[in-house]
Design a protein around this nucleic acid. Structure first.
Length: 210
DNA sequence: CTCCCGATAT
DNA sequence: ATATCAGGAG
């Protein structure tokens, strides 16, 4: 895979997508962490709807602990896997309070020790909250990367390695994952991609018939 | 590999 | 009616 093509794609996306638009809403590193944990297999709209009320009354590990599991569950009941997620959010709040002084750690090794936090969630927190140039590979990044031919792998860790190599030195390195996600969500959709109005249609090796 | 398990788009 | 949605743990 050549790096020129990757740079060309990122440039086109950067010109056509405003990353200030739709994204998970948060007020600090902790609420971002919670929002991302809640976002597994759920839409960002649904997550924002649930956290809008939750973060008003709970925006720190101590707040979540005081809230308790029952009221926490009631706030995330509309999300997929709500029981597991509520349990994880409460457990990670305890761990942050007990082992990290109530602060969200800034290394991937520490972040993935938290319950409900895997490599992808840790990468999002590092990128969005702490401005590190990670490339979280979620369902959108995976799909977009494969359709554009940036990787032949299916394991997220392999895809991440391929993308990191292509993104090395790229001026948009900090928002590449966000550009891919927004492109994947609104244009390069899983079921019915809008190739007819895609800014990358001319160069995409996998354009669907229009 | 399975389980988790609600809302939304198509 | 079903595929998909900012995945992680066992």
């Amino acid at each position: 895979m050549n790096k020129r093509f990757f740079e060309q794609v990122v440039d086109v996306l950067a010109k056509n997508i405003s990353t200030a638009e739709t994204e998970l809403k948060y007020t600090n590193p902790f609420t971002l962490l919670v929002a991302v944990v809640l976002s597994a297999q759920s839409t960002d709209v649904g997550v924002n709807k649930a956290t809008q009320d939750l973060f008003k009354i709970a925006s720190s590990p101590g707040d979540i602990i005081n809230l308790g599991i029952d009221r926490l569950v009631s706030h995330v009941k509309t999300l997929n896997y709500y029981n597991t997620k509520a349990k994880n959010v409460l457990a990670l709040s305890h761990m942050l309070a007990d082992e990290f002084g109530g602060q969200v750690p800034q290394t991937r090794e520490e972040l993935v020790r938290l319950p409900g936090v895997g490599r992808k969630t840790a990468n999002v927190v590092l990128n969005v909250a702490f401005n590190q140039p990670t490339i979280p590979v979620d369902t959108h990044v995976m799909r977009v990367a494969q359709r554009l031919g940036f990787t032949k792998h299916t394991r997220p860790e392999k895809v991440e390695a391929d993308l990191e190599q292509l993104a090395e030195g790229n001026p948009h390195i900090h928002k590449i994952h966000h550009l891919f996600i927004l492109h994947g969500r609104y244009t390069c959709k899983a079921r019915k991609p809008l190739c007819a109005q895609c800014p990358l249609a001319a160069v995409c090796p996998n354009v669907q018939a229009v």
